[in-house]
Each structure stands twice: as C-alpha cells, then as structure tokens.
C-alpha cells in the first residue's frame, strides 16, 4: 500500500465509516422499541411489568457475556465496517463471518489489512441485502415456501451449518497448518472441559469461555509459531 492509498484509507474511508456506523447505530436503538409502543397505543395493550423484568433478566443474563465475546472474537474478520453492520443486522457467525471469509478468499486479500477491511465492508453489506431480501420474501410468503421444498431438501438444511463450519475451518487451517497443529487439539480439550462443566464457576455460567479461550490460544500460538516472521516484518 502506498502513501496515497493509506491517506485515502485513514483520512477518508475510515472516518466516514465510523461516522455513519455510530450515527446509524445510536439512531437504531429507539427504533427497535417502536413496535412495542404501537401495540400499546394502537391496540391498547398493557405489557406485563413482571413479565418484562423476568424476561429481560433471563435473556440479558444469557446474552450479557456474548455482547462482548462475540464482537471481540469476530473482529479480526469483520473489522470496523463489518462490526457496525453485523451488530446492527445480526447473525454474525451464521451469515456475516462466512460472507466476509468467502470474499477475502476470492479477492485473495488478507483479513486485518486495509484492503481486507474494505472487502469485509463490501461483502457484509452484500450479505445484508441478501438476508433482508430473503427474510422479507419468507415473511410475506410464509408457509407456502416450506410446502414447495421437498422433504429431503428440508432435512438436508439441518446439516448446512455443520458442513459450512467444517469447510470454513479447513479454509483457515490451510492458511496456517503449523498453528492449527496446536490450536485444534486445544479446542477439543476446551470443548471437553466445557462439557464437564469446568467453566460453570465463571460469571453468567461461563458458556462463552470455550470460544474466548480458543481465540486467546489461537493468538498466542500464532504469535509464537511465527515469531521469527513477525520479528523480521518489524525490521
């Protein structure tokens, strides 16, 4: 990347994305409560205070750790533009991360670089147009869609995410097999520890511990396995 390109990235692109991301994110917060307000005003509903408090406590306590763990673990691929869009639209691991991964691979660009950031911005926006369009069709057509698809196809959809994650895992592994030699067994151990309930003592039940520790292990292993390369790059 030359100085001119870096200038465009740092002085034009990023400031714009950050400004748009922040403004639209803050504006979105009151918008999400409009349906509740309308149900109260238009239909005379009375939300149950006990129900609201119980429901919010239940849901928020289940999600609280993920508010931090999910963005922190996926930031390397989403980057700044992807973060704003992903945590406004949602479905971070199922749709946004795979779309960004595929785009980075097809453009032959590394995650975490300036070009990678722009590719992530483009790809996640595209994934949002696709998912909003698809969900809109589903919301309008409803059950008619399910009646068209053969049973075999509906059954196969149950295996889409496992197959997708296996594929994406191998894609990442092939980029750094040396690190994977250590990270993958560590992930197995962490999974078994999680299943044995060893993380339950952590705040909010520790359900997030496995993925967070896998990321920490990944970073530490990559730094150490490639320390010569990193040292050389710093000179």
């Amino acid at each position: 990347m030359n100085k001119e390109q870096e200038k465009v990235y740092k002085e034009e692109y990023l400031p714009y994305v950050i400004k748009v991301g922040k403004i639209t994110s803050w504006i979105s917060l009151p918008l999400i409560f409009i349906p509740a307000l309308i149900v109260v005003l238009a239909f005379g509903a009375r939300p149950d205070p006990g129900g609201v408090i119980t429901g919010l406590i239940g849901l928020c306590s289940a999600m609280l750790a993920w508010y931090i763990v999910d963005p922190v673990t996926l930031y390397p691929i989403l980057h700044i533009p992807g973060m704003y869009m992903t945590y406004l639209c949602g479905n971070s691991k199922e749709i946004r991360a795979p779309a960004a991964t595929a785009a980075l691979s097809s453009a032959d660009v590394e995650a975490g670089t300036e070009q990678g950031t722009v590719v992530a911005g483009i790809s996640i926006a595209i994934s949002i147009f696709i998912s909003v369009g698809t969900m809109t069709i589903v919301a309008i057509l409803g059950n008619a869609i399910l009646s068209i698809l053969p049973d075999t196809v509906l059954h196969a959809l149950n295996y889409l995410l496992p197959s997708l994650f296996g594929t994406m895992c191998m894609q990442r592994i092939l980029l750094d097999p040396k690190s994977t030699f250590i990270i993958l067994p560590a992930a197995v151990v962490l999974k078994l520890m999680s299943r044995a309930g060893l993380f339950k003592f952590l705040p909010f039940g520790g359900g997030y511990a496995q993925i967070l520790l896998c990321v920490i292990v990944g970073v530490i292993v990559a730094r150490n396995v490639h320390k010569d390369k990193i040292r050389h790059a710093g000179k």
């Binding site: 670089t113 895992c169 980029l175 690190s179 993958l184 990944g218 990559a222 490639h226």
Partner: peptide, 22 residues
C-alpha cells in the same frame, strides 16, 4: 505487519471452536 498473522490465529481459534461444537 503482524496483525494478519495474529488475525489468522484468532480466526482458526474461532472456527475450531464452532466446528468442534458440531
């Protein structure tokens, strides 16, 4: 310049975790 290397390590960690869950 080390960011892509570390980013790859972090992503391998993420996807190993998500895959092992399956």
């Amino acid at each position: 310049l080390a960011v892509p290397i570390i980013g790859t390590g972090a992503l391998i960690g993420v996807y190993c975790s998500l895959t092992i869950d399956r």
